[in-house]
């Protein structure tokens, strides 16, 4: 089980959180057109390695937490508030 360091509550078990998807996508301009919105809503990378993602702490403070997690090793590199720019390790996988 993951242990996620919530910026407000501290380290809590994964069971208190809900995974909420890729945190790297940004909403297109309202005039961007259907293709851009289709990509924004449905199209996701499926990386093996580091991934910046949303977790919702619905069993605790109900805040959104940004998490940099390795999809292959499940290591969590950093957590922060939604506005935080979190460092993503360069190497796709740990050596």
């Amino acid at each position: 089980m993951h242990q996620i360091d919530c910026p407000w509550c501290g380290v809590r078990d994964e069971a208190e959180f809900q995974y909420q998807g890729d945190a790297s996508v940004t909403r297109p301009d309202p005039d961007a057109g259907e293709d851009d919105f289709f990509s924004y809503v449905y199209v996701r990378d499926n990386p093996k390695g580091w991934h910046t993602e949303w977790w919702h702490h619905n069993g605790g403070c109900r805040q959104w937490v940004k998490v940099v997690r390795n999809t292959a090793t499940h290591e969590i590199h950093a957590t922060g508030l939604p506005r935080d720019g979190l460092p993503v390790p360069q190497a796709r996988l740990k050596p």
């Binding site: 509550c9 809590r12 069971a15 208190e16 069993g59 605790g60 403070c61 109900r62």
Partner: peptide, 10 residues
Amino acid sequence: CAQTQMAQVG
């Protein structure tokens, strides 16, 4: 004090 879950209940 803390908000958490016990027996899957908030």
